[in-house]
Design a protein around this nucleic acid. Structure first.
Ligand SMILES: [Mn+2]
Ligand SMILES: [Mn+2]
Ligand SMILES: [Zn+2]
Ligand SMILES: [Zn+2]
Lengths: 141, 141
DNA sequence: ATGCAAATGATAATCGTTCTCATTTGCGAT
DNA sequence: ATCGCAAATGAGAACGATTATCATTTGCAT
């Protein structure tokens, strides 16, 4: 548990809960996680943080640009490390796992659609919900 | 308040609350509405239905294919009349109003992206959040 | 080591939505 | 038109995700 740099740069002090949450995301074990996911994974690994703190820290990290929040169907927010580059998501309807993609044609077309209508895009989200067509879903948990 | 045909075809009996909700959507006054929106608009027009009934009816209409549900950011589901043809949305960040669009290039590209990764698309949602660039937002409420 | 603003965490509260269940209603059969 | 009854309604409880409160703890500059 280290790298307080990220936190300091973001104007957040290096507290134990923050470092734990950050290292969980940096572990790469699970890329997209809800607050509940983070809370349970931390508890499972012996580190006990409060659920309220997890929610607070996730929101702070989002505002600091460390994490990105996604609103998939299902009600709960999902977070992932901000890797600087935008991408969209395909959600596997078999296992719920999320796959990432980026398509320049789609991105360019969105700009055109928006400007044609007098809009300037601030943000966007493209969520594809799909069935895995391989014989056995390789995303089974 | 008429057109019980739609309801009968969907295997739903023509009850007063159902007819009221349906005619509100058919009035075209407001195309995208949340359960709360529907509830308040009905109350405002003198028709009083229970909030639980509004939620139930909206879900039934969705399952019957009369309405389509959208999960925009903000937590609450939004419904609109199912006009048969799929389309995506631009949400105005000034007034929250929703504008619709359909772009064949984007749709086609999504199919390619999915099949390239071994997925078969079941559904998708593209939400663009943007600022209106016209001198004065023509969508002010 | 001290002081104190900032952070934490247990809990209450809020929000959107669904569930429960006693009462009402639509509607097919009389 | 009237019955009978399954289906529908609505008031309120319950629920799941998230946020607010606030007394206690902690990071960190001095
Ligand atoms: Mn991602
Ligand atoms: Mn629409
Ligand atoms: Zn994109
Ligand atoms: Zn589309």
């Amino acid at each position: 548990m280290q790298q307080p740099e990220h936190l300091k740069n973001a104007g957040l002090k290096s507290t134990v809960p923050r470092l734990k949450v950050l290292s969980l995301f940096e572990s790469g074990q699970e890329r997209h996680m809800s607050a509940e996911d983070v809370y349970k994974l931390l508890l499972a690994s012996g580190d006990d943080v409060g659920l309220a703190t997890v929610y607070r820290v996730l929101t702070q990290f989002e505002q600091a640009g460390l994490l990105v929040r996604h609103y998939f169907e299902g009600g709960k927010s999902v977070f992932e490390l901000n890797q600087g580059k935008h991408h969209d998501h395909i959600v596997c309807l078999q296992c719920g796992r999320v796959e990432e993609f980026y398509d320049t044609a789609i991105e360019a077309r969105q700009e055109k659609v928006a400007s044609d209508r007098g809009f300037s895009i601030r943000d966007h989200a493209l969520h594809i919900y799909a069935d895995c067509t391989k014989k056995q879903c390789p995303h089974k948990p």
